[in-house]
Design a protein around this nucleic acid. Structure first.
Length: 739
RNA sequence: AGCGGGGUAGGGUAGCCAGGACAUCCCGUCGGGCUCAUAACCCGGAGAUCGGUCGUUCAAAUCGACCCCCCGCUACCA
């Protein structure tokens, strides 16, 4: 019998920023678990995706960076491709939309739809900037909202009151690039006649009762409220050109073109296998199911637009299931790439192994509703579930067996009951994982794996091999054999979730080969009895929680140290500068503009606060490897100094973590530091009263404070690792700026 | 505004579509056990008027109506 085939399509991440945990949890990890499961079962899987490289977000980013769309799109494609590989997401092909192949496939579809009468050319009005000499997409025009009077409304929708506008409706339109007033010009565009597909779409959706209810409902609602024909071309240069004469300066809208990537990627994959027709097996055989993994915002493109395109084109399979996920949020805020906090995969993988991240995201997957991400929760779940329950079970079984037997012990007679108990537990886990994973219920699938691990722990306790070791060595080996069978089953069942570590576990069980295609049956295969066991090492280590982002987390970029001034000389070539030799645990040279405020004698022997991760700079020919922090008010300048015992080199942390990256002087200037007087345990006077955690500080004492931004109403006092407050060397008015 | 989702012990979360006996699991907390293991594992307890009100029913977290609060989408952010 031929192996069942399955097509897995994954929403294309946008090539204007690095992918983050939200992409992972929402649309990348689920299909990888799904495809690994299917491959374990021996099914043939084609899994494709790529970078969505066209569209305005890319051009906007390029303009901001003074770069080209090509450059931005290529850069993020490479970054994201690597991030996806590093996370262990295995695609048959992860390509991109800016390829000849994609353009060819899009053109083929465009022309066939045109031929079949589903595309139509129509006249529309569009903003045109006479100064930039180009048509302006909605986002490039701003103006005054005619409903609420908001002066900075976008031309398509007012962010304040939510009103939407047609072209030309907004008052006083302005081109956001050159601020000229755009005019209205007539332009020709192709419209996709979605209305042609209303009836067939409705019956298609009704037929797909296995869709998640949110996907069903959302789609039905859309359909029932009626479809509108949509323009699928626009006036801009970055994108797939329209394949017709007389259409210079027009490209195909990304929302229309990007979904076609599923098909073009499949064809590209087929090319690469040497059989250019291979894609057909996955797209034209009605028995092959196509699964589309994406986030909830993407639902209509996959349940309405893409099926319409496919229907209009003909002969290709429609999506079988669209298991859309909700969002992963960060403290309730949307984890987004265009605004708000972002936790990108490359940075996370520098800190943690992929399997730890995969575990957490699978356990906290936003399947039914938005799920919240926090580092605290990450630490808790990884340490208490993955490490303590699963990892520790592996390790206690393997290390005990290795230490006392050195090889896989046989199963003697007389363990009928125990044997049956273990068989049942494994069998149950197999059924559950199969049921849940084949129906895209990944959280439950993982839970079933963890339940088996918990059973293992309970079983290990109940048979107490450590006491059998003295009383009945054969029986002890027997119960270990049974535990090893549980471990082996866990290796296979855990593989879709934790591919890297379970692969290593496979070897620790003295097994040959690896887990992969068709390994499902190995969950219950005979152990490698009699084989020597390799020395086991714990598979997972506990993680330490990175500190939560506080309003002051930007401060973490500063590396401040206590410095002892050893020697002061006048700068040979400047009349305001002095050259300081400072001990910050190691000797460095600083150039400071303190002449006139301090004498050489006053500074020598003084403890100061130095920023040490400032890029070294030459000041009038003398190298300065940092900067002495000083407060200035009017014509007064006073250096900051610890108000108690402090060692040279000691960090000034204020309880925060620190990154060691070098800062430019400009970056440093963005930090807001001011002097203030402690009022009570919760407030300080920085020229105005401000909330600050000043518990334990002496009232009336002057200290330096960090502010998230100027005018903020919370502040953080500076103090050293040993909690010595940083004050001012003398008296200064409150609110004095520190530089 | 329209549409969609959500509100369950101190925190997080399952169950809800197909209504039923002590409401799931993780963390925390309290007590006990074990000592093979990464201060880990195992057992037990306390802790919830299942957002509110009204209704249907022998029976409601679950079905219906109304209300309150969060969040997302509305065609250029998974």
């Amino acid at each position: 019998m031929e192996r069942p085939k399955i097509l897995i399509c994954v929403a294309w991440p946008y090539a204007n920023s690095a992918i983050h945990l939200g992409h992972m949890a929402g649309s990348l990890l689920p299909p990888d678990i799904f495809s690994r499961y299917h491959r374990l079962r021996g099914h043939r899987v084609l899994m494709v995706s790529g970078s969505d490289q066209h569209g305005t977000p890319v051009t906007v980013r390029a303009e901001k960076e003074g770069s080209t769309p090509q450059e931005v799109a290529e850069r993020y494609h490479e970054i994201n491709k690597k991030a996806i590989e590093d996370m262990g997401i295995e695609f048959s092909l992860f390509t991109k939309t800016h390829t000849d192949n994609h353009v060819r496939v899009v053109h083929d579809i465009f022309l066939r739809l045109l031929e079949n009468g589903h595309l139509e050319q129509r006249q529309t009005m569009q903003y045109y900037c006479p100064q930039c000499k180009k048509f302006l997409p909605d986002r490039y025009v701003e103006g005054r909202c005619i409903k609420c009077g908001n002066e900075n409304s976008r031309s398509d929708q007012c962010d304040k009151c939510g009103a939407t506008f047609e072209v030309g409706e907004i008052a006083d339109p302005v081109c956001i690039t050159c601020h000229a007033r755009p005019e209205m010009r007539e332009t020709q565009h192709y419209f996709f006649k979605l209305t042609d597909f209303e009836a067939p779409l409705l019956s298609y959706v009704r037929k797909n009762e296995h869709w998640r209810s949110n996907v069903q409902l959302f789609t039905k609602n859309w359909l029932e409220s009626g479809l509108k024909d949509r323009p699928i071309t626009r006036d801009m240069s970055w994108g797939v050109p329209v394949p017709l004469p007389g259409t210079e300066g027009k490209v195909i809208y990304v929302w229309f073109e990007a979904v076609i990537g599923y098909l073009s990627a499949s064809k590209e994959w087929a090319q690469s296998t040497g059989d250019p027709e291979a894609w057909k097996a996955f797209w034209t055989d009605p028995e092959v199911r196509g699964y589309y993994f994406l986030g909830k915002d993407n639902i209509p493109f996959h349940t309405i637009i893409w099926p319409s395109i496919l229907m209009g084109y003909g002969d290709l399979n429609l999506p079988y299931d669209v298991p859309a996920n909700e969002f992963l949020t960060f403290k309730g805020e949307k984890l987004s790439k265009s605004k708000g906090p972002s936790i990108d995969i490359p940075s996370i993988l520098r800190l943690f192994e992929a399997d730890l991240v995969r575990y957490y995201l699978a356990a906290n997957m936003p399947e039914g509703k938005d799920a919240d991400f926090s580092w605290e929760d990450f630490e808790t779940k990884v340490n208490n579930e993955l490490v303590a329950t699963l990892g520790n079970y592996f390790h206690r079984v393997l290390s005990f067996t290795h230490k006392n037997f050195g090889k896989v012990p046989p199963l003697p007679d007389g363990l009928k009951d125990e044997s049956r108990e273990v068989d049942q537990a494994i069998a149950q886990a197999l059924v559950e994982v199969e049921t849940y994973l084949s129906s895209c219920q990944f959280k439950k699938g993982l839970k079933a794996v963890m339940d088996l691990a918990q059973f293992g722990n309970r079983f290990f306790d109940s048979v107490a091999p450590w006491s059998l070791l003295r009383s009945d060595r054969d029986r002890c080996g027997g119960v270990l054999n049974l535990n090893l069978r549980v471990v082996q089953a866990l290796a296979v069942l855990g593989y879709p979730f934790l591919p890297f570590s379970t692969q290593r576990l496979w070897g620790l069980l003295a097994n040959d080969g690896s887990i992969g295609d068709g390994s499902w049956k190995d969950a219950t295969k005979d152990l490698s009895v009699g084989r020597p066991l390799p020395e086991p090492k714990p598979l997972y280590k506990k993680v330490e929680m990175p500190s939560e982002a506080s309003p002051f987390s930007a401060f973490e970029a500063l590396d401040l140290r206590v410095g002892l001034v050893k020697e002061v000389t006048d700068h040979p070539n400047a009349d305001k500068l002095m050259v300081l030799q400072v001990d910050i645990g190691s000797p460095i040279q600083l150039v400071a503009g303190l002449k006139g405020y301090y004498s050489k004698e006053q500074l020598t022997g003084k403890k100061v606060v130095v920023i040490v991760n400032l890029q070294p700079a030459k000041l009038r020919g003398m190298v300065s490897q940092g900067m002495v922090l000083a407060a200035e008010a009017g014509d007064q300048v006073k250096v900051l100094t610890p108000c108690g015992p402090a060692e040279p080199g000691e960090r000034v942390t204020s309880g925060l973590d620190h990154g060691g990256k070098m800062l430019t002087f400009q970056e440093f200037q963005a930090f807001v530091l001011r002097t203030g007087t402690v009022l009570n345990d919760r407030e300080a006077d920085l020229g105005r009263p401000v909330q600050a955690d000043t518990a334990g500080l002496t009232k009336g004492r002057q200290a330096a404070f960090f502010l998230p931004q100027d005018g903020a109403d919370t502040a953080l006092p500076l103090f050293t690792e040993s909690k010595v407050v940083i004050g001012v060397d003398g008296e200064l008015e409150n609110g004095a700026r520190v530089r």
